[in-house]
């Protein structure tokens, strides 16, 4: 203990004698780190400002290509505050929105296409971080195809009284998708109905 202490004291003495006053100051590490963090944050802010517009545009382009994949005959679309309207010959043919679910491995983003009678046209998993080979089966047509034509009352797992069969070994992922779609659907139907009035 005592020996350690002495070595420690010696070290401090040595560093304060051989370097300048600032480097020996006990607050110097704190000040140095503060400066580094300040420079770092400023740099990141600059880059963020430069890339923000492009990132948002990329995200929008991804959504629109999904919209076209679901409503193949759409010729026009209109982005609303938190959903999209698809048109053909100036007639509304459907709506689409993104639902977010909390899966087994993180957030699952689901793109939902709706017909004008508020039944589901199609759902697509935009992104997920589920377990490969198990949870990732939510992206397959055998799972997402089950949603076609359902109204929001039927969107729950069959053991909960709905019409969706969970994937064996991936109940949490299946439930996350199903619940997210139902919840978002219920909200969005209200929003769309009040907007259309």
């Amino acid at each position: 203990m005592n020996e350690n202490r002495q070595i420690h004291d010696k070290k401090i003495k040595k560093s304060s004698s051989c370097s300048e006053k600032i480097f020996g100051n006990r607050f110097y590490p704190l000040i140095f780190l503060t400066i580094i963090v300040f420079v770092s944050v400023s740099l990141v802010m600059v880059v963020n400002n430069m890339t923000r517009v492009k990132i948002l545009a990329e995200k929008d382009a991804a959504i629109i290509s999904q919209l076209k994949a679901i409503f193949t005959d759409t010729d026009d679309y209109e982005p609303k505050k938190d959903y999209y309207i698809a048109y053909r010959d100036k007639q509304v043919i459907g709506f689409a929105f993104v639902a977010k679910g909390k899966g087994y491995g993180g957030e699952i983003n689901i793109f939902v296409g709706l017909n004008t009678d508020f039944t589901i046209e199609q759902i697509k998993i935009l992104s997920n971080t589920e377990t490969p080979g198990l949870g990732t089966k939510i992206t397959e047509d055998s799972f997402t195809g089950q949603f076609k034509g359902l109204s929001f009352k039927d969107v729950s797992l069959s053991k909960d009284g709905g019409k969706i069969d969970a994937i064996t070994g991936a109940t949490i992922s299946s439930k996350a998708v199903t619940d997210a779609v139902r919840k978002e659907l219920e909200e969005k139907i209200e929003v769309i109905k009040s907007d259309m009035k």
Binding site: L43, V44, V47, N48, T51, K54, I55, E58
Partner: peptide
């Protein structure tokens, strides 16, 4: 962070 933003864009 810079790399991640550039890749995302």
């Amino acid at each position: 962070t810079i790399l991640s933003l550039v890749f995302e864009a």
